[in-house]
Write a protein that binds this DNA or RNA. Structure first.
Length: 570
RNA sequence: CGGGGUGUAGCUCAGACUGGUAGAGCACUGCGUUCGGGACGCAGGGGCCGCAGGUUCAAAUCCUGUCACCCCGACCA
């Protein structure tokens, strides 16, 4: 490809609306342009890189035995009503009406549609298992799209769904997909970690996320420094042992103290001069049916909603609004406490046996001090692992190591779904004995466009993108230093032709620009190998090969260049 | 949805407080000089100052509304 002909409008300045580096660089390098909030054009270079991610995914999915299909982007409401998600999915679901006023949605995920295909066509255990995948544009009307391709509303996703005769077979496929994902992300040149994950709105009971390690990531993951266990912090298992000896605090008299308008742990802590870890933080939640529940964690800890859901065995909980809080506690938000509270209470296990603690008094502008588990509250309290893991917390899996916390960008997730959708939609088969059985399902997603952005988050410098070789729009860029020097131009063109003969497509910067301009753009665009063809080199019979990654330059004899480059480009 | 911010040339931004001929740098066009890390000179082109109302002799500037985009929060593969 000749640069003079390429549609790659590069920019010198960072666009003001971009915050993270992948967004800035993708725009500056002329690879994407925003069309609307969270919706982007892919220009030629960006699209080529995106296609590379797709290609790797397809190769590994096919290798793992999955089959590609393509489902509609626009899906009829009926299927979503059948699974119950039409009402439950919320505003992320973009709903549309056709000219006949029939309801449709732009598919944010395709469990319903794929399950519908399978229930209509598969009747026998002999037809199972099946793993069907697609690479498709999805739309989720996110509350707050941001970070360019990392959290768009429209995005490219690979989603796969597998169907099985029993759980064991489904778990076998789960492992196969897990391994396929490891290959995909390794081939993309990413540093990543597979972590145990929450199953969220999709449902199911076993799940791993594939997290690309990057400071700009929106997820926090906890990884044990002694064993192989890693999990999203909202789920990372913590042991029952208290992190410090709260129970050794002397028993104290229960007293009521005035705390006018001090609602947060921080406020009350500084007002009463009691450290935050001596507080029992009481959060009121409601379940799907509206029934309230109180969740207790220490004042210096963060409650994990995911862990609370798991402990309750429910798919959803939400923080109660002010009215519910008043009804349950008799006070406004900020003064809830476990003593005398008339609601089921779940408490983090580190609170078991706590003494001399402070908590809300269930009365406006008052707190209690000297609170003691067992003496002042405890009846009907269930202890569970409810808090978010922090750096230094002991790993509950091995009991040896402690957690280190990393930021991650979730680029893929695998789920064991069980029979949630197959039951709702009636995807059944006849087993060997002629009995009707419900299919076991798994689902497996990769954010294709997000993976592209994640690669840049992880691989760039102050001058621009540094593409991992397998993702680069072109393997090699050739830069003739001057277009006015016939020898330079013809050497560059001959090299491009020789490489083309070897099946390697190059980007040749044939623009009549000053060398500095071409070098800057080459760095920005980030192609891994840059061949500089200049008079100085040609006089000595060499061209220069510069590695984008580390800036090293090697001189290669003109005659050997094509062969040498062909080796390196592959 | 709540809080904050910004909309002026393709990009980055001045101008607004104090109303009076719409600006700079980069980019773009032409000519010339230059040519190994974002050159220089000369001459040009390019604007419904987000949109709609209002105030005024006069509005980019003041007022009201509205739309878009960005940030923080709640939410989320």
């Amino acid at each position: 490809m000749r640069f003079s002909n390429l549609f790659a409008p590069t920019l010198k300045d960072d666009p003001t609306d971009a915050e993270v580096v992948s967004h800035k660089l993708l725009v500056r390098a002329g690879m994407i342009r925003q069309v609307a909030r969270g919706i982007y054009d892919y220009l030629p270079l960006g699209l080529r890189a995106l296609r590379n991610v797709e290609r790797i995914i397809r190769e590994e999915m096919d290798r793992a035995g999955a089959q590609e299909i393509l489902m509609p982007a626009i899906c009829p409401a009926e299927l979503w009503q059948e699974s119950g998600r039409w009402d439950r999915y919320g505003k992320d679901l973009l709903r549309l009406k056709d000219r006949h006023e029939r309801d449709f949605c732009f598919g944010p995920t395709h469990e319903e549609v794929v399950t519908d295909i399978v229930r209509r066509e598969i009747r026998s255990y002999r037809d199972l298992p099946k793993n069907l995948y697609q690479v498709q544009t999805k739309f989720r009307d996110e509350i707050r799209p941001r970070f360019g391709l990392l959290r768009g509303r429209e995005f490219l996703m690979k989603d796969a769904y597998s169907f099985h005769v029993d759980r064991a077979d489904c778990e076998r496929e789960y492992r196969r997909m897990y391994e396929a994902y490891e290959r995909v992300f390794s081939r993309c040149g990413l540093r990543f970690r597979a972590v145990e994950a929450d199953t969220g709105a999709i449902g199911g009971s076993l799940s791993h996320e594939f997290q690309v390690l990057a400071e700009s990531g929106e997820d926090s993951i906890a990884a044990c420094n002694a064993c192989s266990y890693a999990a999203n912090v909202e789920l990372a298992a913590l042991g029952p042992a208290p992190v410090d000896a709260l129970t050794e605090e002397a028993s104290a008299e229960l007293r009521r103290v005035s705390t006018p308008n001090r609602r947060t742990v921080e406020d009350v802590s500084s007002y009463l001069d009691i450290p935050a870890d001596r507080f029992i933080k009481t959060l009121i939640f409601v379940r799907e049916d509206g029934s309230p529940i109180a969740a207790l964690v220490r004042g210096d800890q963060m409650l994990s909603e995911a862990k609370l859901r798991v402990a309750l065995g429910v798919p959803w909980v939400g923080l109660a609004d002010a009215d519910v809080v008043r009804r349950v506690t008799g006070a406004s938000v900020g003064f809830a406490g476990p003593v005398g509270l008339d609601a089921p209470i779940l408490a983090d296990q580190t609170l078991e046996g706590i003494r001399g603690a402070a908590s809300g008094a269930n009365q406006d502008d008052e707190h209690l001090v000297g609170v003691e588990h067992g003496r002042d509250f405890g009846d009907g309290v269930t202890f569970a692992d409810l808090r978010e893991a922090r750096a230094g917390d002991r790993c509950a899996r091995c009991g040896e190591g402690t957690y280190e916390i990393y930021r991650g960008i979730e680029v893929g997730q695998v789920f064991y779904l069980g029979t949630k959708y197959s039951t709702a939609l009636g995807a059944t088969f006849l087993d060997a004995s002629g009995q009707s059985q419900v299919m076991e399902m798994g689902c497996y997603g990769i954010g294709v466009s997000r993976t592209l952005a994640a690669a840049i988050e992880q691989s760039h410098d102050e001058n621009g993108i540094i593409w991992p070789k397998p993702l680069s729009p072109y393997p090699i860029e050739i830069v003739p230093v001057s277009m006015n020097d016939a020898a330079v131009v013809s050497a560059a063109e001959k090299l491009a032709a020789d490489l083309q003969e070897r099946g390697i497509e190059t980007l040749v910067d044939d623009r009549d620009e000053r060398p500095g301009v071409k070098f800057k753009d080459a760095d920005l665009i980030g192609i891994p190998l840059r061949v500089t063809v200049g008079k100085k080199g040609l006089d000595r019979g060499i061209v220069e090969v510069k590695h984008r990654k580390d800036g090293t330059v090697e001189e290669v004899a003109v005659g050997d260049a094509a062969a040498r480059l062909a080796e390196r480009a592959l």
